[in-house]
Structure formats: structure tokens, C-alpha cells
């Protein structure tokens, strides 16, 4: 174990995220069977597949929003084994390494936009209010939302809210950003704002895992495409290649459904 931790030096080309043999079931309903996945530093992984395939569950298992029944998750050297009891400390460390963006934003409705982004920095990183606000304003500017800082989230459009949520997650300096269908709750036109921000983020070298139905994003931005169906990964590889020449019949059926509508 000691040795493993040393080997996971961030300087090496070790994957930032490693998921090994993840499995989960609700009673007899199997949602994940033996999912393994690794995400290289600075890469963008897109996860696609029909609904109910388990894409979101994999993502939510990565930061333990869902407890897997078995398997192992390593993020930035912080290892969690589903079989063993996790200490709150290692759980906190793992969650600090992973920023999460939700389909429904989940901003805090009783705080201004600025407080939404600053509070986690104060509480989790121990920043002073001034430090946190400075960082928050910088991020909000980058998201094109500096003028919204003193508004409440309810006064912002869906696309703006999602960008605030991205800023909130980025403010904690994560090693990897997890996106759970970030544009699915948005109008297509508004979704574009969010995709632009994500593209910009990818171009700065942020490691990202994105569960999405946006095929253009998966094709043009992602370095790695993972196709899931029925609780397992059925295909993974270079996006262009999979989209052009899918190997699996289930993949072909799914791609026909999403591309030829």
C-alpha cells in the first residue's frame, strides 16, 4: 500500500482516475457489473449510452455519492475500496480531488452567486473570505458572469446557473471534473454556453469525465469515448473511430437512434 502511494506521484503519467471492477445492484436489479476505467491526466472522457446504462451511476460512484457494492476507486492517489470501511478523512480527500457538476446545477438557492462559489472555499479549503471572493470573482469573470455575483441563482438562466456550478466546483482546485449530463436540463441554445465553457476548460488541460448525450461534444472535444449499456462498458476508444465504425451491435443501434433522428 505504501509503495502504491509513492508510485502514484502526480508527476508520472499515472491515470488521475482509476475505477476497478466496480459493481452495484439494488436488490436483484443490477445497475453496474464489473466496470473498469482509467482516465489519463489532461484527457477528456465522454460517456455515452442509452438511459439506464449506468453512466451516471459510474460517475456518482467515483466520488461516493453512490456507494458501490464492490470495486476500487483511485482518484489522484486517494484510494477507496468498496469492500472496506472508508474513513471520513480519505473520503474528504477523494472528494476534494474531484469536482462535480450536476444535471440540475444544485446551487444553493438562499445564497448569492458569489456566496455559492466562495462558501466551499472558506469551509473546505479554509480560505479567508477575501481570498475566497477574489478567486470566485476571477472564476465568474472567466465564465462571463462577473455581473451576476450579487444576484440569487433563481435570477439566472439555466445556462448561467450551470456555469456558476462549474465555477463553484473549479474554485476548490480539483484534479478532475466530473460532469453528470450538464446540458440535459437546458434548452439547446442555452446548452451551447455551457459546452463552450467546458471546451475552454478542456483546452486548458483539465482532466474531465463527462456523461452526456451531446454527440458533437463527444466527437470533437473528447479524447476517449466510453459506450455503456446494461450496466457495463461495451466499447471504448477514440471517439472518431467508434462513431465511424462501431464494433458492437448495441453501439450501432444506439448511434443510429441518436444520430439519425
Amino acid at each position: 500500500m505504501e509503495q502504491l502511494m509513492i508510485e502514484l506521484n502526480p508527476q508520472t503519467t499515472q491515470p488521475v482516475v482509476q475505477v476497478k471492477n466496480l459493481a452495484k445492484a439494488y436488490g436483484s436489479n443490477v445497475v453496474l457489473r464489473d466496470v473498469s476505467l482509467s482516465v489519463a491526466e489532461g484527457s477528456v472522457t465522454a460517456m455515452i449510452g442509452p438511459s439506464g446504462a449506468g453512466k451516471s451511476t459510474v460517475l456518482r460512484c467515483m466520488n461516493l455519492l453512490e456507494q458501490p457494492d464492490s470495486g476500487e476507486i483511485v482518484i489522484d492517489g486517494h484510494c477507496i475500496n468498496a469492500g472496506k470501511k472508508t474513513s471520513p478523512k480519505s473520503l474528504a480527500a477523494l472528494r476534494r480531488s474531484a469536482g462535480m457538476v450536476f444535471q440540475h446545477f444544485n446551487l444553493f438557492p438562499h445564497m448569492t452567486v458569489l456566496r455559492n462559489v466562495s462558501l466551499p472555499q472558506e469551509r473546505v479549503l479554509g480560505c479567508s473570505r477575501e481570498q475566497a471572493n477574489e478567486k470566485s470573482m476571477e472564476l465568474l469573470k472567466r465564465m462571463g458572469l462577473a455581473d451576476k455575483a450579487d444576484q440569487y441563482p433563481s435570477r439566472c438562466s439555466g445556462g448561467q446557473q450551470q456555469r456558476i456550478a462549474i465555477a463553484r466546483a473549479l474554485a476548490l482546485g480539483p484534479r478532475v471534473m466530473l460532469f453528470d449530463e450538464p446540458t440535459s436540463a437546458l434548452d439547446p441554445e442555452v446548452g451551447v454556453e455551457v459546452l463552450e465553457v467546458m471546451k475552454e476548460l478542456a483546452s486548458t488541460g483539465m482532466t474531465m469525465v463527462v456523461v452526456t448525450h451531446e454527440m458533437a461534444f463527444a466527437e470533437n472535444v473528447a479524447d476517449e469515448l466510453v459506450v455503456m449499456a446494461d450496466g457495463g462498458i461495451i466499447e471504448k476508444g477514440h471517439p472518431g473511430q467508434i462513431l465511424k465504425d462501431p464494433q458492437h451491435e448495441r453501439t450501432r443501434r444506439f448511434l443510429r437512434a441518436v444520430l439519425e433522428r
Binding site: 455519492l65 472528494r95 462535480m100 450536476f102 444544485n106 466551499p120 469551509r123 476548490l172
Partner: peptide
């Protein structure tokens, strides 16, 4: 979602109750 966001951000239980 408020609980989930709080967990994902790594808030302590006390912070979740007092602030969120």
C-alpha cells in the same frame, strides 16, 4: 440535490446543517 452538492463539495455535516 442540496445534500448531494454539499457532499460532493466535501462539506462537514455541521456545515451542511448550519449553512445549507
Amino acid at each position: 440535490g442540496q445534500w448531494e452538492a454539499s457532499s460532493a463539495l466535501g462539506f462537514h455535516r455541521a456545515t451542511v446543517w448550519t449553512r445549507i
